[in-house]
Design a protein around this nucleic acid. Structure first.
Length: 553
RNA sequence: GCCCCUGUAGCUCAGUGGACAGAGCAGCGGACUUCUAAUCCGAAGGCCGGAGGUUCGAAUCCUCCCGGGGGCGCCA
C-alpha cells in the first residue's frame, strides 16, 4: 500500500543523509507516517525530524531539511515540504491519485489485495454462550466483533476458522436438565417446581412443550425420581439449534461447533492435560480439591481444576480446550472474544497453555465490555435467571440485522455501550447504517442509468478526475487498506464502521458537486470509473462487517 | 483492599505521543425544474473527570485523587 512505499522513501532519505554526512550516524527509530488533520499539511507527514533531533544534536528543522533534500523521486509524490516545528510533509500527485481509480476498478472485488497474515492458521472463537438459554444482547456484540474480525483476517491473508464452544458439560447443564424436567412434568399436570437457582424463563416451557410434542410422555418417570439424562441432552440440542438460528439471523455462520463434552472422553484432551500437568509438577491437592499450582508460574493465585465433589471446573476443561486448539489442531494463533466479566480468566488460561506445551502469547483474548440494555432509558436486566430477558433475536427482529451489526461494531470493544431499544427502533431513518447503504444504492442507481444510456467506464481517462471532491473521494478509497491493517494489528473492528461513514460522506459530497451523467461524455466515463471504484470499496467494507450493500433503497 | 476496563460537545461515541481536539444524533439557519433530499451547505456547541510530573510537544505516557463498569482459590 502507498503508505508503506512512502515510509520506505523517508527511510531511504535518512540512510542517504547519514551516508553523505548531512546527518550524524546513529540508530534511528522506524519511520512512521500519519495523515495530518489539515489538508495544507499534505497527505502524509513524518515526525521523524522531531523524534531524532536529540540524537542528531541538530535543530528539528535542519534535520527535516537534510531529509527533504534526499527523498528519492516517486511517481505518487509531487512535493515534499518542511514545516515547523519540524515535520516532513508529503503531497500526493493529483494525476497519480486520479489513476488509482483505474487501479481499483481494474482489480475489482478483490481490492484491496493484502497479505498481512501470510497464511497464518488462525482461529477466532466467539460468543460461546452457555446453551442453557437463548443468547442475549451482550452476546450480539461478541458476535458482531468476532465475525467481523474473522472476515477481515480472512481478507488479509490469514487462514481462518470460526468456532463456537458449547459449554455442555458443566454443572449448569444439570440445573438446566432439572429445570426442563420440572417444566415437562408440569405439562402433564404434575405439581413440580423448578429447582433453586434454576432457569425460570419462559423459553424453558417452550422447550419442554417441543419435547412433549415430539416424544409425548416418553421422558416421564415415576414421581420423585430424577430425570432421564437424555432429556437434558435433548434440551441442550434444541437450545443450541435455536442459538444457531438466532446467530444466523445476524449473519453469523461458524465453521465448527465444538462440544465441551468431547474433551472429556476417556483418554481425551482433558485426561491428557491433567496427566501432563501432574508430570510437570503443576498439580497440588488441597482441601479435597485438585489445584493448578499457577502461583508458581507467576499467577496471583492457584486455581481449582477438580472440585472436592469430583467435578472438573470450567477452567480445567478450558485448558484442555486450548490444548486441543494449539497442540492437537495446530493453530498458529487463536483469538478468543470474551465478555469483560471473563477478564480474570485470561492470564490463567495463558498460563495453562504454556504449562501444557503451548505458547500462551499465541492466544489473544479480545475482551469487550458488556452491553447495558435499556428500554426508554431504564436498565433492563440481562440475566438468564431473571424472568424477563431480552434476546438477541428480539433486537435483530426489531431493528434489523444490518443496523444491529453496525450498532454493535461502532464502539471500541473496551468501552461499555448502551443499547436503548426504543432509540434503536426509532432510528429507522437516522441510523448511520442507512447513510452508508444509501451511498451504495445511489451508485448502483447511476450505474443502472448509465447502462440504459449505453454509457460505461470503458476507455475512461482518469486524468479528468481533477475536481476537489473527486480527489478527496479517491484519497478516501486509498485509506481502506490502512484501515484493514489497523483492524488486524489492533484487533479493532470498530474502525470499519467509522471508515464506512467517512467514505460514504466523501461520496455524497462528490455526488452533490459532480454530475456523473452529463453533456461531456469523456468526463462521464471518467466519473463512472470512479463510481465503480467507490462501489467496490463500499461493498467490501459493508461485506466485511456482514452488512448488506443494497442496489436500491 | 488488590487487578482490569472506562471518564472527550446536550446524547452516543471516535481520536491513545504531534501541528488550531473530531463524527453521528438532538437543536438552530439555509439548499430539491438537475443521475435517489435516507442527501448537501452553514453557524453554534469542549478547563478532553481533577491535580502534579515526563517530553521540543500530552486527550494520549507516569504518579496520586474522584466517578462509572467488571473481576478477585472449588460459577461459567
Amino acid at each position: 500500500m502507498i503508505r508503506d512505499e512512502l515510509r520506505e522513501l523517508v527511510q531511504q532519505a535518512l540512510a542517504a543523509a547519514q551516508d553523505a554526512g548531512d546527518l550524524p550516524a546513529f540508530a534511528a527509530p522506524d519511520v512512521t507516517l500519519e495523515h495530518p488533520q489539515r489538508i495544507e499539511h499534505g497527505d502524509f507527514a513524518a515526525n521523524l525530524p522531531l523524534r531524532i533531533q536529540g540524537m542528531a544534536r541538530m535543530k528539528a528543522l535542519d534535520v527535516a531539511e537534510a531529509l527533504r533534500a534526499r527523498v528519492p523521486a516517486h511517481p505518487a509524490v509531487t512535493e515534499v515540504r518542511v514545516a515547523p516545528p519540524g515535520f516532513l510533509n508529503l503531497y500526493l500527485d493529483p494525476g497519480w491519485v486520479a489513476d488509482q481509480a483505474r487501479a481499483i476498478a481494474g482489480t475489482g472485488e478483490a481490492w484491496p489485495p493484502l497479505d498481512i497474515g501470510g497464511g497464518t492458521k488462525t482461529q477466532v472463537e466467539y460468543v460461546s454462550a452457555n446453551p442453557t438459554g437463548p443468547i442475549h444482547v451482550g452476546n450480539g456484540r461478541g458476535a458482531a466483533i468476532g465475525s467481523t474480525l474473522a472476515n477481515v483476517l480472512r481478507a488479509t491473508g490469514h487462514e481462518v476458522q470460526e468456532e463456537y464452544y458449547i459449554n455442555d458439560a458443566g454443572s449448569q447443564v444439570g440445573v438446566f436438565a432439572r429445570t426442563l424436567y420440572a417444566r415437562y412434568e408440569q405439562l402433564f399436570g404434575r405439581d413440580a417446581e423448578i429447582p433453586e437457582n434454576g432457569y425460570p424463563g419462559e423459553y424453558m416451557r417452550d422447550i419442554a412443550a417441543r419435547i412433549r410434542d415430539e416424544h409425548g410422555d416418553g421422558f416421564l418417570r415415576p414421581e420423585g425420581e430424577p430425570p432421564d439424562p437424555q432429556l437434558g441432552d435433548e434440551g441442550i440440542r434444541l437450545m443450541v439449534e435455536q442459538i444457531r438460528e438466532d446467530l444466523a439471523a445476524m449473519g453469523v455462520e461458524y465453521d465448527r461447533w465444538f462440544e465441551e463434552r468431547s474433551l472429556q472422553r476417556e483418554g481425551g484432551p482433558y485426561d491428557h492435560v491433567l496427566a501432563l500437568l501432574r508430570e510437570q509438577g503443576h498439580i497440588v491437592e488441597r482441601e479435597g480439591a485438585v489445584w493448578f499450582a499457577s502461583s508458581q508460574l507467576g499467577e496471583s493465585k492457584d486455581n481449582v481444576l477438580i472440585r472436592s465433589d469430583g467435578v472438573p471446573t470450567y477452567f480445567a476443561t478450558d485448558i484442555a480446550y486450548h490444548y486441543d486448539k494449539f497442540i492437537l489442531r495446530g493453530f498458529d494463533r487463536v483469538i478468543d472474544v470474551w465478555g469483560a466479566d471473563h477478564q480474570g480468566h485470561v492470564s490463567r488460561v495463558k498460563a495453562g497453555i504454556t504449562a501444557t506445551g503451548g505458547d500462551g502469547d499465541a492466544l489473544d483474548v479480545l475482551l469487550y465490555q458488556l452491553v447495558t440494555l435499556k428500554r426508554s432509558g431504564a436498565v433492563v436486566p440481562l440475566s438468564k435467571r431473571a424472568g424477563e430477558i431480552v434476546t438477541l433475536r428480539e433486537v435483530v427482529d426489531e431493528v434489523g440485522r444490518d443496523a444491529a451489526r453496525f450498532f454493535f461494531l461502532l464502539s471500541s470493544a473496551g468501552s461499555a455501550m448502551d443499547f436503548d431499544l426504543e432509540l434503536a427502533k426509532r432510528e429507522t431513518d437516522e441510523n448511520p447504517v442507512y447513510y452508508v447503504q444509501y451511498a451504495h444504492a445511489r451508485i448502483a442507481g447511476v450505474l443502472r442509468n448509465a447502462d440504459e444510456q449505453g454509457l460505461s467506464a470503458e476507455g475512461a481517462d482518469p486524468s479528468l478526475l481533477t475536481h476537489e471532491a473527486e480527489q478527496a473521494l479517491i484519497r478516501k478509497l486509498l485509506l481502506l487498506p490502512e484501515v484493514l491493517e489497523e483492524v488486524v494489528e489492533e484487533l479493532a473492528p470498530h474502525r470499519l464502521p467509522h471508515y464506512a461513514q467517512e467514505l460514504a460522506q466523501s461520496f455524497h459530497v462528490f455526488y452533490t458537486q459532480c454530475r456523473v451523467l452529463g453533456d461531456d461524455e469523456a468526463l462521464s466515463r471518467a466519473r463512472l470509473l470512479l463510481l465503480e471504484a467507490t462501489r467496490i470499496a463500499l461493498a467490501r467494507t459493508l461485506g466485511l462487517m456482514g452488512i448488506s450493500a443494497p442496489e436500491r433503497m
